[in-house]
Design a protein around this nucleic acid. Sequence first.
DNA 1: AGTCCACTGGAACGAGGGGATT
DNA 2: AATCCCCTCGTTCCAGTGGACT
Length: 404
Amino acid sequence: MPESDDLFVREDPIFTNKELLEISHLPDEGRIVGRDEEISHLANAVNPAIFGQSPSNVLIYGKTGTGKSLCAKYISRRLVETAEEEDINAVFAYVDCAQDTTETQAVQTIASSVNTEETDIYIPDKGISTATYYKRLWRLLNEEYDVALIILDEIDKLEDDAILMQLSRAGEAGKVTDCKIGVMGISNKIKYKDRMDERVKSSLCEREFVFPPYNASQLNKIMTARSDAFRKGVLQDAVIPRAAALAAREHGDARKAIDILRYAGEIAQTRGTETVREEFVVQARERAEIDRFRELIRGSTPHSRYVLQALTVLSLDQQREDGGVENSGFRTTRIYDVYEQICRQEGTDALSLRRVRDLLKEHAFLDILEQTRHSGGSAEGSYTEHTLLEDPEVVKNVLEDTVE
DNA sequence: AGTCCACTGGAACGAGGGGATT
DNA sequence: AATCCCCTCGTTCCAGTGGACT
């Protein structure tokens, strides 16, 4: 047995508490930086709930990584605690609408997260009608709670307004009599409100808040607050300011900033260096970018990838021809032709043009590509052009090594 | 003011799959 | 076992759409 058997590291030389750098990690009070005003406004809006009265319905806007979900969850948790002290039985449910896009899935999530073991109500994962989920949810609320706060994150990903309608009408329609319901909608698209049904809009948007992006110094504080994820003295002084500056330039996304910090640490780990160096930050950002993209297309069907591949091939060709000067999009039909070729190579039948249009739209929804309508005028018809938003090389690499 | 055209996107439909209820 | 219910993925059909050009 050799003395320095370094196959496994017994003690992590870089991290002490890596959990602090997970996105899902909910910091304690005092660790939420630069959102004091937002938090107090939010608290104010839901305050009546503490006395068992109806909280205001709120809509929160803001780009990704501006602390919307974080603050909403934090407020809800505190609300439930405070209400308890007043002998009010409050509860909150968190729905990630990107995950639960249909009405049924969303009600199911609400009902099952509000449910406890003590009740005799059973909420199955699937198999029952939407109406049944509602019935059970109403019963749960009536029997168990005085106030319920429902957080709908990424509310713009919801297919329709049906659930909003139901939630806002539940009281009026006499479905829920013994429980007050408050809805907290979170969206990163300002224009979301325009697509909403007029009736839903008026009841749901009693209060609106906009979360601005973090600036470099706030990002700096956010990362500093979590820097005890690292062993003492491991982080070089310039790392956090550098990462903050980088992330601030890219829309002030705190999630990205923290990702960069984590990756920088991981780079130090794999390299076996004693400290996290400033130059790791740039590489970390690149890695974060690739990972984010991989996450986006993970789970997409083969044809969805072929379509993306077709666009990538076209983009790369164009770059090669003019050195990346031109950055115009490609017509759907043009992409479809390349897509058909790819299908032939892969030995599968191509999907219909109609279906491919939808697949492209899905990618546009994930901000992988951008669609713009054009009209060629007389005898040219109108058409859509698609432009890849990611670096084609990155896309190509990710597509190639996720063949599995 | 109307024409023209390639493309768009809504609608209706159905196969196949998973699960609950009675 | 029969009957409901919902979801995903895909199809075909077809009434618009937009704007340069007559």
